Simulated scan of single mutants.
Amino acid sequence: MNKSFILSTGSYLPKKTLSNDEIALKVETSDEWIRQRTGITQRHIADEGELTSDLAVNAAKNAIEKAKILMDEIDLIIVATTTPDKTLPSCATIVQSKLKCVNAFAFDVQAACSGFIYAVTVADSLIKSNNRIKYALVIGAEIMSRIVDWEDRSTCVLFGDGAGAMVIKSATHFNEITENPTRGIISTNLYSDGNVDILCTNGGISSTGDPGKICMNGREVFKHAVDKLTASVRETLKCNDLKIADIDWLVPHQANIRIIEAVVKKLNLSMKKVINTVDKHANTSAASIPIALDNATQESKIKPGSFGLLIAIGAGLTWGSVLLCY
Rank of each mutant, 00 (worst) to 15 (best):
V221Q: 08
V226C: 11
H173Q: 12
L242T: 05
K301G: 02
D227E: 11
Q298T: 02
D248Q: 01
D279E: 13
V263Y: 03
I302P: 11
L242V: 01
R234L: 13
T208E: 06
A225P: 06
P252E: 05
W249A: 00
K303G: 00
L293W: 03
V263C: 07
T178R: 12
T230H: 08
K228N: 14
T284V: 08
L293G: 02
S300H: 07
R234F: 07
T284S: 03
E220R: 14
A225F: 01
A292M: 00
A282G: 03
S170P: 09
N189Y: 11
I260S: 07
P211R: 11
N195H: 13
I260C: 06
E220S: 12
V221F: 07
D227M: 14
I257E: 09
M216W: 13
D246N: 12
K169R: 12
K243Y: 02
I291W: 01
N295G: 01
P304C: 02
S300R: 10
D294S: 04
C215N: 13
D248E: 03
L269Y: 06
N195E: 12
A171K: 15
T188C: 12
I177Q: 15
I259R: 04
I291T: 07
E179N: 15
A292W: 03
L190C: 06
P290A: 02
A231R: 12
L250M: 09
G218I: 10
V196I: 15
K280F: 10
K280I: 10
I177E: 15
I186Y: 04
K228H: 12
D248Y: 09
P252G: 00
L269I: 02
T284H: 02
A231T: 04
E261A: 14
N195Q: 08
D210C: 11
N268Y: 03
Y191N: 15
R258P: 04
L250P: 06
S187K: 08
I289L: 02
A262T: 04
S170M: 05
F174C: 10
A171N: 13
L250T: 01
N189F: 13
A286H: 10
N268D: 15
N180T: 09
V226E: 03
N295R: 10
K223Y: 09
P181Q: 11
T188G: 03
I275W: 00
G212C: 10
D227N: 13
A286G: 13
N189D: 13
C215R: 15
K272T: 12
I275D: 00
A292K: 04
D197F: 07
G212H: 10
E235I: 06
K273H: 05
Q298N: 12
L250S: 01
N283L: 11
A296C: 00
I177A: 14
T208N: 08
E220T: 11
K243Q: 13
K280G: 01
Q254N: 01
I257W: 05
